[in-house]
Design a protein around this nucleic acid. Structure first.
Lengths: 240, 240
DNA sequence: CGGGTGCTTGAGCTGTATCAACGTCTGTGG
DNA sequence: CCACAGACGTTGATACAGCTCAAGCACCCG
């Protein structure tokens, strides 16, 4: 739809604004190189391990979460194609969360020296990285608002719309439908409610013909109604 | 306590790791220049206004919040001395949150061109900005965990400890005591509970002699007990 | 065929919200 | 100097959203 660099996939699509020259193009390509596949269930970032490695996620889903001592966990963000994973780990010694692959994923590794050398070679791309992190920030802030102020129904609708938007933005889904590898338990852990209650919420959303989630397919049947219900405003996803 | 640049205050103290040379020192000083005072109650960032200006906060407290259509609001972060305010606004067209000064504050303005020129002149400082934003990210993630998974008592304890830590880190408070300009309503809006319920929670924390909040002074009477209760782990605040 | 994983539903409980009232302090204007 | 209004904090009574515990169902896979 837009004139972004072809062949760089979701990542290039997201950062296309920061790749004006051929030189930047080459650097960005470097970020997307040496791809490798990681299986569902593997931890991309593990707070208990010392060594930290960041990634660019090209395909598949991951989630950032915090394991609680009582056995429950809180997912605080999903990582979708085009997103950085674990960037923070490069900047600090330790980190107290994990990131796990929810599906098989394809990633490029980003280590600290690659990041630093990119900063030296292209201030423009440094801005791009900052921009990307700002976007993550906005998403986290929105999740706080979602969990802190909205009821379970609105909250669920909001997250489902958000994910749809983010997938659509990087060309991984049409506007009203996407494949969603999450279990109800995963979703509930992201929303701060129990999976039992989420199940009832999903039923209600289905009965009111706003949204369905079956066989790992989410369908947003009635976007206007959903948007109204959740008070969803896409501004924070800083599209283009 | 450490060998950080004197005269740059909280901001220099936070970023001292990224100021190895005199050249960087000068650039950082530039970030702290042209200070001005803004009164309590003024909006530093307003999502409804087009123009966006970022700040370095030198003194005083601010908070980032989202106004909900039903009149309630969710505070998702407090901004304390040494923190950036509204950095994201420089990177995107619009923003859907506000930042308001909770006390009179002293700030330096940071505009987009200053930020970009700094990126060009010092990749090291660019890293510093990235590091700072990573820290904000970690704080937001922790707030999601706090609101999503902890009960009101633990949640309150956690936030109070966090703020104490952050103030202590930039030299604005001893380890177990700080001046806190928040009202119970503000705090409740950050914690995702009502001010009525917060009042009861504070009473309980007081009665169990863990924490008191009177006359705008927070005293952490029993840090070990509080830390245990809230499962507080300071790692995410990436001190030094 | 048996066991695991994920989904669904029911019944009862509880943490937090809501509504309402009152107390205290502070600043303001008569 | 008093009267009053407006913030803020405190407490009680009641309601309800979401939790817990428990069970059963539908798959899928070895």
């Amino acid at each position: 739809m837009k004139d972004y660099p072809e062949g760089l996939g979701a990542f290039g699509r997201k950062l296309h604004k920061f790749v004006p020259t051929m030189a930047e193009r080459v650097l960005l390509t470097e970020f997307s190189s040496r791809r490798r596949r990681i299986e569902a269930g593997e931890e991309l970032v593990d707070g208990d391990r010392p060594v930290q490695q960041a990634y660019v996620l090209h395909e598949g889903w991951a989630c950032s979460y915090r394991q609680m001592s009582d056995g429950s966990r809180q997912i605080f963000d999903f990582r979708l194609p085009g997103d950085f994973v674990g960037l923070m780990g490069l900047m600090v010694d330790g980190v107290n969360y994990n990131v796990v692959a929810l599906t098989d994923v394809v990633v490029s590794e980003v280590n600290a020296s690659k990041l630093v050398s990119t900063f030296r070679q292209s201030p423009m791309l440094a801005e791009g990285v900052l921009w990307s992190l700002s976007g993550d920030n906005a998403i986290l802030a929105e999740h706080i608002v979602n969990i802190g102020r909205r009821g379970a129904l609105e909250r669920t609708a909001h997250l489902m719309i958000e994910i749809g938007y983010r997938l659509n933005r990087v060309g991984f889904a049409p506007a009203d439908r996407y494949e969603c590898p999450l279990t109800q338990k995963d979703l509930a852990e992201a929303l701060g409610i129990t999976h039992v209650h989420l199940n009832r919420v999903l039923r209600q959303l289905r009965e009111e013909e706003m949204l369905s989630f079956n066989d790992h397919i989410v369908t947003l049947h009635d976007m206007p109604a959903l948007t109204r219900l959740a008070e969803f405003e896409p501004a924070y996803l800083n599209n283009r």
